[in-house]
Simulated scan of single mutants.
Amino acid sequence: MEPVELSRAVAAGRATAAGLGLPVRDVDVVHNSDRVALRLSPCEVLARVAPMGQLADAAFEVEVGRRLADTDAPVAGPDPRVEPRVFVRDTFAVTLWTYHEPVAAPITPADYADVLGRHHAALRHVDLRAPHLTDRVAAALREVNDRERSPELSEADRELLGGTLAGLGAAIGTGSAGEQLLHGEPLPGNLIATRRGPLLVDLATCCRGPVEFDLAHAPEEAERHYEGADHGLTDRCRALNWAMFSAWRWRRADRMPDRDHWRVAGLRRMRAALDRCGPT
């Protein structure tokens, strides 16, 4: 968010928590992108503040967190002191989560695989309507196919990117019996080391698909520690992930920091992942 909008978002997060009886003296910006994450203290709440255009995503994330609250899922869940829902303040959607202080502890590949395995086990006991990963692929493909939305993408790269999204999306999204609810984007930045052990955050990306789709977001070494993983499928999912990542970076409206670098790097990593897959 730009400084003016960020200032309003901070005020919205502070006012929401204070209005619910949670003491707020200090506010620290933990993350700032299209939505912000704020540490509120001394109440130790993590407030996620998003523009109203993301209201549905915020509500879905809270619902995922609420459903997982009674399981052993290794996640940072909604703050139990308040009702788990979206609070509207100013022009923002605000959700309140338990804040977990990060600790300086390494997360090994075995730890990563263990967290994903426990999270997947918990999700198998959750009854929740969630989009299929192919819905996300379709959204990315619309950006690539619309030249007005991605005007700076070269025709050669557009053809490769579109073909990769369509081809791998169809190949992976077969609706097989092994599909289940997933985290959806368990990147290293979404797994934090805490005193409770490693915890997953950012639950709004929950979707349905094979577990290999989650594994493809993790460091490659983690896959060796995940029992029963299909390595070929993980390779295809990794190429698909980089294709989706690249599609978002080439959007005219994308605001990711250092976007020009990641536009090039994303396509390069997609090509490298495709080379590892071989003929599909």
Rank of each mutant, 00 (worst) to 15 (best):
R118C: 15
M52D: 13
F60C: 10
L199H: 03
W250P: 01
L215V: 08
C206P: 00
P109G: 04
A12Q: 12
L187K: 07
Q180S: 07
P3G: 05
R39T: 14
T280S: 14
V86H: 07
P198Y: 03
S154V: 11
V201K: 09
P279T: 05
R224N: 10
G178P: 01
H261T: 13
G162W: 01
A12G: 05
P210E: 12
R238C: 00
G232H: 11
L20S: 13
E152T: 14
G167T: 10
L274Y: 02
G173T: 13
W248E: 13
D26M: 00
A122F: 09
R249A: 13
R124N: 14
P106W: 15
T95S: 08
A140M: 07
L6F: 06
P151F: 01
G13S: 07
V4C: 10
A170T: 14
E152M: 14
T280K: 08
R249V: 07
Q54Y: 12
A253P: 02
A139G: 08
A247D: 07
T108L: 08
Y112H: 11
P23T: 11
W97V: 02
E148S: 14
D70P: 01
A166I: 10
V137P: 01
D254I: 05
G65P: 01
N32Y: 00
R271Q: 06
A9L: 06
R195N: 13
R14Y: 01
D127V: 11
R66E: 07
L187M: 12
A73L: 04
G169A: 13
L233N: 10
E44G: 09
L240N: 05
P210S: 14
R252Y: 09
V4K: 14
M244V: 13
E221I: 03
N145K: 11
R196W: 00
L165D: 05
R271T: 11
D254Y: 00
V4A: 12
T164Q: 08
S176L: 10
E220S: 10
V10F: 07
R271D: 05
V144L: 04
L233M: 08
T71E: 00
D214W: 01
A229L: 04
L200Y: 08
A130M: 07
V64Q: 01
G175D: 05
R224V: 09
W250F: 15
R149L: 06
V29G: 04
G167W: 04
V4D: 11
D28G: 15
M256Y: 15
R35Y: 06
R268G: 13
L181T: 03
A93R: 03
Y226M: 06
L168Y: 08
P279A: 15
I172Y: 03
D26S: 12
R238G: 06
T280P: 03
R89H: 05
A170R: 08
E2I: 09
A239P: 13
L215H: 01
L182Y: 08
N241R: 11
G189S: 09
A177F: 04
